[in-house]
Structures are given as C-alpha cells and as structure tokens.
Amino acid sequence: MDGYPKGNAVGAPVDPMIPRPFRITKVKSEVPGVFSWHLVPVDGGGFAYRPGQFNMLYLFGVGEVAISISGDCRDGEKIVHTIRIAGSVTKAMSSLSVGDVIGVRGPFGRPWPVEPIYGSDLVFVTGTIGLAPLRPLIYEVLHQRDKFGRVIICYGSRGTDDILYEDELHLWRGRFDTNVHVTVHSAPSGYRGRIGSVAAAVRAAHIEGGDTQAFVCRSEVMTKPAVDALHERGVSSERIWVTLERNMKCGIGLCGHCQFGPTFMCRDGPVYRFDEIEHLFEIREL
C-alpha cells in the first residue's frame, strides 16, 4: 500500500539550493494574520508538484521559510501559498504586493498518497491553517471524485471569523458527495453550527472504520486527540496519514535540522503514515 514515491521525485529542481524567482500575481487576505499568494515563475517555465509538498520561500536578503503548497496541482498557470505571519520573514512577506518577486526552492517532501487510496472513504481532519496543506489533496480528490467513496471534511477554527477558505468549505458542503463539518471553539449566541473540539466532530461524523483513509493536518499537540478519535471510529494507524513540523532548512535531507527519529522530515515527511511513527510520536523532545 505504501508504494508511493518518497522524496521529490516530481519536479525535482536542478540545483535545489538556489532560489528560482517567482512573481506575485495575486495577494489575498484570508483570515486575520493569514494571506495567500499566487506565484508565477519569472523564467516562464513550469512547476510540477504533488499534493502535500512544500516550498522554501525566499525573500531577498531577509531569509527563507518552509511553506506548504496549497493550490491545485493541476493548475499549470500558478502555484498558491497560504502563509501565516509567524516570524520576521513571514511578517516581511506580508507587506509584499502584486508584481514583487520572491525566490522559490522546491518542491520538497513526501506528498500525500493519491493513487494508493483509490476506492476508500476519506476523512480529512484539520483546523485553522492546517487546511492549507490539505487543500491540494482535496482538490485532487474532487478532480477524481468517482475514484473514492465517501468524503468527509472535519475542520475546526477558533471562532466564526477565522475559518480558512470559508467560501470553499461552503461550496464543498453544498456538494451532495461531500460532508463538511465545521466546528468552532466559541460563537455568538444564535450560531447554528457545531461548537467544540475537532476530535468531537470526528466522533460525531459517520465514519465507517473499515475502508476509511484519514488525513490529519494539525499541530503536533492536536494530532494526538485527532488520531485517538479516529482510532475510536475504527480507523487503524495504517490508514491514518499525518503531517509533522520540524525545522526545515535545506529541503533535501542535507542540513540535518528536521530529523525525526531516523527520518529527515523534509524528505521522508512531512507526510507520514501514522503506523510508521507511532512508536516515536509520544517521545518527548525527540
């Protein structure tokens, strides 16, 4: 089942340490502290990637950050990144506008599986900015909708005004072939949606464990409750895919920073099948 290519077999860059200039063609404010870019290669060439891969984005003279790709990998025109302001580089990036040029190294990392999960029911478990790395997979699943069983999306945000890609969640919810459960931590009185933890939404979703593949994209501390809820619903660890976060610097398993157990997360992750790392997952400060 794990016959999926590891590493950056797709679109492997020529010299992975050299940023390639991309022009910003659109800036979109998503939710407070989060913005998206549309990027187009200045050299006019293409850019191939798989859902779940990430790029190192370079701001001239300032620095570089690892950001997952959040667009549709069938979109040959542009790549999309959704960026949360979290430090000095992303803060500086938030002031750029259409026409500015940034550097891109990538794509890096092991992608989400697509072909190996044909025929399964799918459940996506995510919250806040975690929907960004999952969106390319959701797009891909919807492109090949007939190849999959039921599709359930469980998404959580802090409140009702920071739901990422809210318009798209509404669109997906409107489809007859997709179940979308949005949950928030609190809401104004009279709110008609679900309020509570994402794990509670997973428990409430009608997941039939047997042939369900689950995709969890949460912070490390919130991944555990999500996995517990999936286990309760009968989804075993071999059918749960998670992403983890480490200090990605080079993207090619060369600088050592992103090691997690024997893996280089930038190359062997950030997507892992949960059973591969279950024995390491709860070891502190690993």
């Binding site: 340490m17 050299i18 940023p19 200039p21 200045v42 001239f60 026409g99 500015d100 940034i102 550097g103």
Partner: peptide
C-alpha cells in the same frame, strides 16, 4: 557561500551559485 544575489527591479538576480 551558497549564492550571491543582487536586487533587480522588484526581485533579485542570482550572481553565483555553489555549483
């Protein structure tokens, strides 16, 4: 040194790379 670059318009140009 991995690369040197200079500002070019609203972006940059790579002058030298490790390769």
């Amino acid at each position: 040194n991995l690369f040197r670059a200079e500002r070019a318009g609203r972006g940059f140009r790579i002058l030298r790379s490790v390769g």
